[in-house]
Design a binder for these strands. Structure first.
Lengths: 366, 366
DNA sequence: CCTCCGTGCTTCATCGATGAAGAAGACGGG
DNA sequence: CCCGTCTTCTTCATCGATGAAGCACGGAGG
């Protein structure tokens, strides 16, 4: 029996009659001692069943642990089902991995208190936070930890400044302009009766369903707010009264919500001829409802998405391509730079591109 | 200016003239002190810009950090591109998340030394390792850390016992039987000239391409070895001489490898009428090559996959469904149980199911 | 009036390692 | 023969917190 309690550096040191520091060096700084002694130390370590230097203790002393936290708006389990989230993680990992940094996926939770605790307790050197609402306590907790941070999409830089973290690296796109671009395309095709299917506007859902202008303006998810504003900009450009445009918002970005949203907005009178969706996954559900109602796309109904994520190409979806993967890359890169001592990089806006496929066309002649 | 060096518990304690332990309690055990004092402590903490108790230090003292490591055979960046890996992670997260445990994705690396270091240095309470070759030093490193472990798929329980960790929880399927089932289906359709497209057999590729029986038996990836053995079992059942069956193995489980593999085995004479693939992603590439060569599936060529992962249904692929998500769930559950003090759960084999779709049919009459 | 107990806070040791600085020989140069 | 330098190892303090145990006080119970 080697031992009943954990074997530590000190145990090996005593066994061999050398200092603890020498044992430490045998593992972490081989050049600091003779090969002969080093071999002896390692052999003794093996014999005693020493698990190697405890990374936790080493991390405490060194001040870094080689891990980057990733906090996402929704739970982890949701994240892995959303191709956009997965792509973000993929991007993050391509930069983190060569740097030898692990990614700690911070558990989300319905329970607000535990959600915060998870961020507070994460053992990491820095954190990427993504897609959080302006009023999410998670943001406050993350900033409050005074940990190097990098933000993807939301909260916006101005909100970060408000929270006392003005130089936080931020990566995102111009959501308003991108949304205006896709709406502009649809309107240019001649559509005048449009509707919107959006994911959540607020963290705490007052009521899912159609939402009026006041509700839209009060959205605490900056991305949702800005995309709606972009649609509205485009509508204003051709003289459409926004008050008459049905806007549905559901809980999250899933086909199920999209399907429900489509049912809701297509029930309004006059029936819209084009639906703008704030994500491709929503659009996927919209297409499903359209099929169920016997509406041909795009002959009877045009549908546009957002993201150009996994299902879009296969579905022939007109959408806005955004560099999700690059967002993950840039966020981690900025974080690593900061950890290496460079100053905060500030906001960085990546380009987007309208992708026209077959889900949009001229409105039906009615 | 609050300070230039980090604010600690002690600083607050001194500022207020109380003990450090009391400040600690104000954060972690609110019931241990009066509300009045607690408020005072928190207010002072805010004033001094205290980031909250350092989770690293707390973790060292407590002996746990609330994170589970996940080590995967290939790099992280690869993992996020593979639907099977993502599903495994999704399963893992659905169990870890409610338990408040984060998932630390351990960085893989081409550099063997750093790969090991990443496992050694991961700050976690336990680790899930998935799909590692029998001779992967990562396994040795993981076992050597004497950290609670749970293994998915490979290495096999017998190999774990060899390494001195006999009671390690293990989750997987009966790869040999599952492979025999899908091969049996193809053979029952009447095919006699079959070929195999497989992902890697060895960690260190001697030579990609067609591999003979000796090479197959020497595979250090137990999953690959057993699936080949299963195909072979089925072939033996109908009197096929396995030495005549072309077996291609490529680096990893990607459509690109599948496409290359198909090209290789379809160039053999006589041309096979059915291709068995060890994953759906490989099969995806095989279908691409078939299309390029003008072969109709299944009229000219039958193709079978493995996994029943994301693309399979869409492609009409005949395959074997395996409960990837559940593997992730069970592995993490077993790990959490062990962390809670229960003894090792040992091996657990999950069921599989043959799924026949449209990519297999009778061989062409030649 | 004395004892017992709970509340609220403190003391002490400890979790397991590593950075900075220093000391003892060995060795080469002048 | 002395001195500076290198190698090899040691000493000391510290990273930042928390468990276990202890002390002081006030109120309840006998």
């Amino acid at each position: 029996m080697p031992t009943d309690r954990p074997v530590t550096l000190r145990a090996i040191a005593e066994e061999l009659g050398v200092s603890a520091k020498t044992v430490s060096n045998a593992f972490s700084r081989p050049d600091q001692l003779s090969d002969r002694l080093r071999e002896e130390v390692l052999a003794t370590a093996r014999r005693l069943g020493y698990p190697g230097p405890n990374p936790l203790a080493a991390g405490l002393r060194r001040g870094r642990v080689g891990a980057i936290g990733v906090a996402y708006d929704n739970g982890l389990s949701y994240a892995f089902d959303d191709p956009v989230a997965v792509e973000l993680l993929a991007g993050a990992s391509t930069v983190a991995e060569p740097a030898g940094a692990g990614l700690l996926l911070v558990p989300g939770s319905v329970d607000a208190h535990r959600r915060e605790a998870a961020v507070t307790d994460a053992v990491v050197d820095g954190m990427v936070v993504s897609s959080l609402a302006d009023d999410d306590p998670l943001v406050v907790a993350a900033v409050g930890r005074r940990l190097p941070l990098a933000v993807v999409d939301q909260p916006r830089p101005d909100r970060l400044a408000e929270l006392g973290a003005p130089d936080t690296p931020w990566v995102g796109i111009d959501d308003r302009a991108a949304a205006a671009a896709v709406a502009g395309h649809v309107l240019a095709l001649g559509h005048r009766r449009i509707a919107v299917v959006s994911f959540g506007l607020h963290r705490e859902p007052i009521r899912r369903g159609l939402v009026d202008e006041a509700g839209q303006a009060a959205a605490t998810y900056a991305v949702s707010r800005d995309r709606l504003a972009g649609y509205r900009d485009a509508a204003a450009g051709v003289g459409i009264d926004w008050a008459g445009v049905p806007v549905f918002h559901g809980e999250d970005s899933t086909p199920a919500v999209g399907a429900a949203g489509a049912a809701a907005v297509l029930a309004t009178d006059p029936r819209p001829t084009a639906l703008l969706c704030t994500s491709d996954r929503l659009a996927e559900g919209v297409l499903r409802t359209a099929a169920r109602l016997g509406l041909r796309v795009p002959a009877d109904l045009s549908v546009a998405g957002f993201d150009d994520a996994a299902p879009a190409a296969g579905l022939g979806l007109t959408t806005v391509r955004q560099p999700t993967r690059r967002k993950g890359e840039e966020a981690v890169r900025a974080l690593l730079d900061r950890l290496a001592g460079q100053p905060g990089a500030g906001p960085r806006t990546l380009p987007t591109e309208l992708v026209v496929r077959t889900s949009t066309g001229p409105p039906p002649v009615s």
